[in-house]
Each structure stands twice: as C-alpha cells, then as structure tokens.
C-alpha cells in the first residue's frame, strides 16, 4: 500500500500534459484501512439488519431486528418494572395511597400521562378547567364530592348534570329576580326575600334550602353550591340568566347547558383510574 510520498519519484500513469505528469500516489495506509473497514461494515450491516428496499418491503436481515420489536421490548421492560407498583396500587385503598409519599408520588407521576391523554383536553393540563365550559379540578368546590372514592366513581361512570329549564315555568320578572338573588348570595349579600322566592320556585329542592347545594347529590344531579362565588357556567348576569332559563342537559331545549363527563370505566383500568384519582385529589381540592 502506501509508501512515503515523494512527488519527484512517484510512479505515474504515463499520461502527461504540458510537462505535468499524472501521478499514481496511493492513498495513505490508514485511509485504506478505514476504507476497507468501511465497506466490510456495510456488508455485515446489510446482512444483519433490514437494509435493501425492494418493491413491497425491504430485506429482513438475519437478526430479525425491527424498530417496532425493539419498541415493544422496551415497553415490556418498562411494564415489568411498573408491575409490582401497580399491584400495590390495586391492593391499597385510596387513603393508604394518599398517606404513602412514595406510592402517592408514583401514582401522580404515572397519572400525568393518563391525565394528559384523557382529561387535559377539557380540564386543562393542570386541572384548571375552562371558565364556564369545563369544571376546575384544582379548587375545593365539587359538584359530586371531592373524596377519593367519589372521584374514582366520577371517572369510572362519568357524570351528567341535570337542571330543568325554567323558561315558561317562571315569568321573566321572577327569573330576573332569581338571578339577582344568586349573584348577591355568592357575595354573601343575598336577601331573605330572594331566598323565599328561591325556595318558592323549587330551586331549594336540589340546591338546598340555604342554596348551599348538595341536597340530592347522591342522585347525581350535581346541583352546585350557589353561595361560594365559584360558578360552573359563569357568574355574569347574562350567564346566570341563561342557566336558569334553559337549564342543564335538557333535551329539546336549544340553549341548554351541556355538561357531560364521559365514563372512563371501559377505557381505563381500575389501577389507572385509581392513580388518576390520586392526581386529581392532589390537585388542590381533594377532601
């Protein structure tokens, strides 16, 4: 291969133009070694791995390696690491999970992706919701209850609120007076006269005689506490009027509020729901 380059004495091809010879100096040895190592590497690689594209698919390579196999293997490895923890999640109660810092942290971290995939679309990545549209999960105002088991129930079975439309039931003046009352009540300034009208119109049946909500929440109506200043559908006068007039989730009422939380029981495993519940509980308002 390479000999020291001496231009004066270098071998030539016999070609010459205007006294300039075409030399045939070989490349340096290290270069040739790298060159041969390079093509040998290529051949070996082409034999071992999928390499040459054919019409419908590529050559397979004798190792049988594919990207999807490697991916599935990595997922399986990850699952194997998580398995004992998931077993623990399944065995522990909500209270136990919340009390164990390590497991709580595991559940929250695992639920981060599940939350992002399934919940964040409506409730926001931090559970902050969207004012007037989707409830805030980080505060302590719960329509159906903020304890661990109720959160699990809400995720598993979903929720569908229900409030009748009052247009036609009540006259316009009454609806306006009711709106005035609930807005004032949220600021702690509700009048006794207003509360009387509130109960007369039947609102207290669901929202409670003191407007603090919750009376028939076991039935799943999700009637809100109207005294806390936290509004499910917005606290401006127009929004309150709309809620009273057209209700929530009423069939055949054009302007009714839509408030449907889908059921995730069929989509997520009980362990996943449990871990989600830990995350939601820890967002700030858990009870």
């Amino acid at each position: 291969m390479a000999k020291p380059n001496k231009p004066q004495h270098a071998p030539d091809t016999g070609h010459e133009w205007d006294g300039i010879r075409e030399l045939t100096n070989p490349p340096p040895r290290w270069w040739m070694i790298a060159f041969h190592a390079g093509w040998i590497w290529c051949v070996v690689y082409f034999i071992l791995y999928p390499a040459i594209p054919l019409v419908h698919e590529s050559t397979k390579g004798i190792l049988g390696w594919t990207q999807i196999k490697e991916f599935k293997q990595a997922v399986a490895e990850n699952d194997a690491i998580k398995a004992p923890y998931l077993k623990k999640v399944a065995a522990m109660s909500g209270q136990e999970l919340l009390a164990d810092p390590g497991m709580r942290n595991f559940a929250e971290s695992s639920a981060k992706a599940i939350f992002g995939d399934n919940c964040a679309g409506c409730h926001g990545s931090g559970g902050q919701g969207a004012p007037g549209l989707f409830p805030n999960l980080a505060d302590d105002a719960w329509l159906y209850g903020g304890d661990f088991d109720t959160i699990v129930e809400s995720i598993t079975d979903g929720r569908q609120g229900n409030m009748p439309a009052h247009e036609g039931e009540l006259d316009d003046a009454q609806i306006n007076k009711l709106a005035d009352f609930v807005i004032a009540e949220a600021q702690g300034k509700g009048t006794a006269e207003g509360l009387a009208l509130f109960n007369e119109a039947g609102c207290g049946g669901c929202h409670g005689e003191d407007a603090k909500g919750g009376a028939i929440n076991e039935l799943g109506s999700g009637a809100a506490n109207l005294t806390d200043g936290i509004w499910r559908f917005g606290g401006s006068r127009d929004e309150v009027l709309r809620t009273i007039r057209y209700g929530v989730n009423q069939e055949d009422v054009p302007n009714t509020r839509v408030a449907i939380m889908p059921a995730f029981g069929g989509k997520l495993s009980p362990e996943e729901i449990k871990m989600l519940a830990v995350k939601v509980h820890e967002l700030g308002g858990g009870k």
Binding site: G126, D139, A141, D228, G229, I230, G284, G285
Partner: peptide, 14 residues
C-alpha cells in the same frame, strides 16, 4: 403554572 392560583370556595386564594 396551570393554574397560577386557585379560588377556593371559602374565598381564599391558594
């Protein structure tokens, strides 16, 4: 950062 603050039902900010 999400949410930056939480309005609690008793009026407190968290």
């Amino acid at each position: 950062r999400q949410p930056l603050y939480i309005q609690m039902s008793n009026g407190m900010i968290e």
